[in-house]
């Protein structure tokens, strides 16, 4: 699972969101590191929809424009949980190794 897909699924865990809502939430979740472009967002959304991980929720009119909301499906929730567990296991392994193998003490200048 790519990072944008992971973050988009995470952004939809608590509530359904529209396109720009997802962009803002992903920006916040990643601490400003991942700023989705519109083409990237809809490319990933399209794939998530065809994989059955995301589905349409409702339409709302905002400032004269129709906004489509998207929500996580049960399959999407399960897929995100599996991926999050995998990433967490990898992170735990890396942290354990880092703690077991501290950096060598700097050599004293002769």
């Amino acid at each position: 699972m790519t990072e944008p897909a992971f973050l988009i699924l995470t952004a939809l865990v608590d509530q359904a969101r529209h396109g720009y809502g997802i962009v803002g939430e992903v920006d916040g979740l990643s601490g400003g590191r991942v700023r989705l472009k519109v083409g990237t967002l809809y490319g990933v959304l399209d794939r998530l929809v065809s994989d059955g991980l995301v589905e349409p929720d409702r339409d709302e009119v905002h400032q004269g424009r129709l906004r489509h909301y998207f929500r996580l499906t049960d399959a999407g929730r399960r897929s995100l949980a599996v991926e999050a567990e995998r990433q967490a296991a990898n992170a735990r392994t890396a942290l354990d190794r880092l703690q077991s193998w501290p950096p060598a003490s700097p050599r004293r200048a002769s």
């Binding site: 396109g19 962009v23 519109v38 967002l41 809809y42 424009r65 906004r67």
Partner: peptide, 17 residues
């Protein structure tokens, strides 16, 4: 075919950004 489904939504998202 893709624009027929997504264009207005993409425009709304871009303009909001």
């Amino acid at each position: 075919s893709y624009r027929e489904v997504w264009e207005d939504d993409m425009v709304a998202t871009f303009l909001a950004s």
